[in-house]
Lab assay of single mutants.
Amino acid sequence: MPVRRGHVAPQNTFLDTIIRKFEGQSRKFIIANARVENCAVIYCNDGFCELCGYSRAEVMQRPCTCDFLHGPRTQRRAAAQIAQALLGAEERKVEIAFYRKDGSCFLCLVDVVPVKNEDGAVIMFILNFEVVMEKDMVGSPAHDTNHRGPPTSWLAPGRAKTFRLKLPALLALTARESSVRSGGAGGAGAPGAVVVDVDLTPAAPSSESLALDEVTAMDNHVAGLGPAEERRALVGPGSPPRSAPGQLPSPRAHSLNPDASGSSCSLARTRSRESCASVRRASSADDIEAMRAGVLPPPPRHASTGAMHPLRSGLLNSTSDSDLVRYRTISKIPQITLNFVDLKGDPFLASPTSDREIIAPKIKERTHNVTEKVTQVLSLGADVLPEYKLQAPRIHRWTILHYSPFKAVWDWLILLLVIYTAVFTPYSAAFLLKETEEGPPATECGYACQPLAVVDLIVDIMFIVDILINFRTTYVNANEEVVSHPGRIAVHYFKGWFLIDMVAAIPFDLLI
């Protein structure tokens, strides 16, 4: 008679799926529990143990900040960024110097990925580790590398530091407007667009060049630039800015003055950032001319202004700041037409079709709590990747769950009947059967004279019903998954307890 339990259901295979997918890609990662103190490590794979030199037993239950890997060259700011990422709910990448158990130093890129439950609360953290440099290539500990984003994938490793954006290309926007319009339909740009040429040739750093990471940081200074100062900065030398009595002219307006920039070969870094931020506020060169004239017309309804409409929906549905990093990277690809469009465009503009998908598509409701890094690593669709929660398995109709209350009560009843059979069957065979043979035949009273025979008949009927119930009862397979398919249940029961239950259900007393 089957006594099969499996009270692990309803099970959740999400954690096993993450481990299996990460292991298949030869990654070095740990999984931490966000619900406990210090976000203790609950799993670390073999790749991480080989990377740091510690065994799994030495890593388990330690804080996922990996303070046991810190050393003299470990930056405090990087460690603080990892700790801050564990307090938030967004994906974050941090470069930090770690030390192995043998004392060797290596520069590592740590990717902190939160995993949320159905309520939107962070319950786990996945920390992925990628070695960037070994100890002989690690720089000085005073050099802070965590304020910069990861290198873009479309640049060669040897040319990542030679990417320079020439400031004269930004200063000569109005001069290039006529050349853009003359391109017409034969050019790649839309009317009114501004073409910015980027020099990728390796050259020595000069005062006129600005690194790509500095251009990325310009967006942080746009908020500090007032509207009046932006307007004066875009007017140009024809209309000098008016300053109040006793007030000095704005240095932001002076930063885009061609006369002032041409007199000296070098520009201050602050002026460069502010000038680029001011130019980015204009949607095209037409807006710059309109600002000089004193009238700013409404933005025209053409394809170039609607190019950012799908980007707005993608940004609203993005799951991490990696989408913004990807957008900034692609927006700086050289030799393309940049349409400086305000994100607050007309909502009635139709979304044009684009061959290049900048932001990841909208994630469906079932995966809105899973970050983009987890979705990318697992390579699963929205119909396959579940949320991290207890999910009731989908069972067929008329199927009994093996952990249901009805099955528990039924098993206790069958257990009592088995005990009765084990006690009274030998007793009936030894004593009652002998008395029946010696006594007179009682054929007239039937079952009324033999109450134990009636009980034995009921017990046999219950055993037959138990066999039928076992054909529709779920079970737990070797992978700790609840199986509810009727065919698989029948095959599993035939290979197991079916023969024993059938022999126990045969009414031998009635056959004798």
Rank of each mutant, 00 (worst) to 15 (best):
V3E: 14
V3W: 13
G6V: 13
H7Q: 10
T13N: 09
T13D: 11
F14H: 15
D16R: 11
T17I: 07
K21N: 08
K21V: 13
K21T: 13
E23D: 09
G24L: 08
Q25M: 07
S26C: 07
I30C: 06
N33E: 10
A34G: 06
V36L: 15
N38E: 14
A40D: 10
I42F: 01
Y43S: 01
Y43E: 01
N45T: 06
D46G: 05
D46V: 05
F48M: 01
F48V: 01
A57H: 09
E58R: 01
V59H: 01
T65P: 01
T65A: 08
T65R: 06
C66K: 01
D67K: 05
F68P: 01
H70A: 06
H70P: 01
H70R: 03
R73F: 03
R77H: 13
A78I: 01
A79H: 13
A80E: 10
Q84R: 15
L86K: 01
G88H: 08
A89D: 13
K93H: 07
I96L: 04
A97Q: 15
A97H: 15
A97V: 14
Y99C: 01
Y99D: 01
V110P: 01
D111Q: 06
D111G: 08
V112C: 06
P114M: 01
P114A: 01
P114E: 01
V115W: 09
E118Q: 10
E118K: 04
D119M: 15
G120D: 14
G120Q: 14
G120C: 07
A121D: 11
V122I: 08
I123T: 13
N128V: 15
F129P: 01
V131L: 12
M133K: 14
V138G: 13
V138N: 06
H143F: 05
H143G: 13
D144V: 09
T145N: 15
H147R: 07
R148K: 12
G149F: 09
P150E: 12
P151W: 13
P157I: 09
G158P: 12
R159N: 07
K161Y: 01
F163V: 06
L167K: 05
A169H: 15
L173S: 14
A175W: 03
A175T: 08
A175K: 14
V180I: 14
R181I: 13
S182I: 06
G187F: 06
G189H: 06
A193V: 06
A193E: 10
V194N: 03
V196C: 05
V198E: 03
L200R: 12
E208R: 06
L210V: 15
V215P: 06
V215W: 09
T216M: 15
T216Q: 05
A223F: 04
A223L: 15
L225H: 06
G226P: 07
E230C: 09
E230K: 05
P237A: 14
S239V: 07
P240Q: 07
R242Q: 13
A244W: 12
P245S: 15
P245C: 07
P245H: 04
P245V: 09
Q247C: 10
P249Y: 06
P249T: 14
P249S: 04
S250P: 15
R252Q: 08
A253Y: 10
H254P: 12
N257R: 06
S261N: 05
G262P: 08
S263Y: 09
S266E: 14
L267V: 07
T270D: 12
R271H: 15
S272Y: 04
R273G: 14
R273C: 07
A277M: 12
A277Q: 06
S278V: 11
S278A: 15
R280S: 15
S283W: 01
D286Q: 14
D286R: 05
V295N: 07
L296C: 07
L296A: 11
L296Q: 10
H302N: 11
H302P: 05
H309Y: 14
P310G: 09
L311E: 05
L311D: 14
L315K: 07
L316A: 11
L316R: 05
N317P: 06
N317G: 11
S318F: 09
S318G: 11
T319G: 08
S322G: 12
L324V: 14
I330V: 12
I330W: 05
K332M: 05
P334I: 01
I336S: 15
I336W: 15
T337E: 15
L338S: 14
V341G: 15
D342H: 05
D342W: 01
L343Q: 13
P347F: 04
F348M: 11
D355N: 12
D355P: 12
R356G: 10
R356W: 01
E357Y: 14
I359L: 12
A360D: 15
A360F: 03
K362I: 09
K362F: 08
K362S: 08
R366K: 07
T367F: 10
T367Q: 09
H368P: 06
H368E: 08
V374K: 03
V374P: 01
Q376R: 05
V377G: 04
S379G: 04
S379Y: 06
L380P: 01
G381C: 15
V384M: 11
V384R: 07
V384D: 08
P386R: 01
